[in-house]
Design a protein around this nucleic acid. Structure first.
Lengths: 145, 145
DNA sequence: TTCCGTGCAAACAATTTGCAATAGA
DNA sequence: TCTATTGCAAATTGTTTGCACGGAA
């Protein structure tokens, strides 16, 4: 585990020779302060609440840096911007194509699939980089299907 | 099934009041003539072999039209452009994050996962719009893991 | 004769990059 | 001091759109 508290994450940066800046602190603050998955744009917004002068491109660069350090992951839920979350909080995403809702599922739910893919294709399915698409409970009920 | 031969697909278009144009025929020709998954750009290239004057934007519009008619589907395998294939040829995609290789797997391999998601989350996972990412057999062997 | 389809140029959204100035260690 | 980091503007990538003309039905 790469560390889950802000201090642990800052330690990861220092260990790798990166510098700890206020912009990085602010980005970490926004990410740890939200359960939601945030787009880079939303992270920038959050950062601007306290640091109005941090540029959008800096946020992109920081998120990219954090991702290379294993602190942050990004996922594609649908078309449009991807969303970021702390790597420590790993899970898979079910996105309803009808209502656009997102259901988070623990990795445990993938155990069976993982076995099948490994056994039959030698493929280790480990990093949830994309969502699974389909139709959620509510939408299925609504349309009696 | 929406039809798999070019004639059947053209019939779908006519049935819906769409016009059958040479650009549409050319796009269908390229798609049926390739096992590969093609980006819109590659489809345009293929079309240009016989119809050099068909504009890229027209190809996008045609692909979009075909998709709404259920003839074609697009999938995101990684960052960058999405790829198109005939809907009749449905399958899931495993993309290796190390070598970028793509393994196609039949829907059958998802039966177990589909059951779990339906039972535990009421979610019907039906449309493979995104790839599953991980590491393929060759890359795992190469790194002894 | 309709009105869908198309070419073209321009707009767009999300993200990346080059560069010079700034600021952590 | 030394070099990672940042702000800014501009470039890139993939895709969409407005408009007026041309071609299927």
């Amino acid at each position: 585990m790469a560390g889950t508290t802000v201090d642990e994450m800052l330690a990861v940066l220092r260990r790798d020779g990166d510098r700890v800046t206020s912009a990085k602190r602010a980005v970490l603050g926004v990410l740890t302060g939200s359960d939601e998955h945030l787009t880079a744009e939303q992270v920038a917004e959050g950062v601007h609440a306290t640091h109005p002068d941090v540029h959008r491109s800096t946020v992109y660069r920081i998120l990219d840096n954090f991702e290379r350090r294993g602190l942050v992951s990004h996922v594609h839920l649908r078309h449009g911007p991807s969303v970021y979350h702390l790597t420590a909080d790993q899970h898979h995403h079910l996105v309803c194509e009808q209502c656009d809702g997102v259901v988070e599922v623990p990795d445990k739910a993938m155990t069976g699939l993982r076995k099948v893919l490994l056994r039959d294709y030698g493929f280790s399915f480990d990093t949830p980089h994309f969502a699974l698409t389909g139709r959620c409970r509510a939408c299925r009920a609504r349309e009696s299907g």
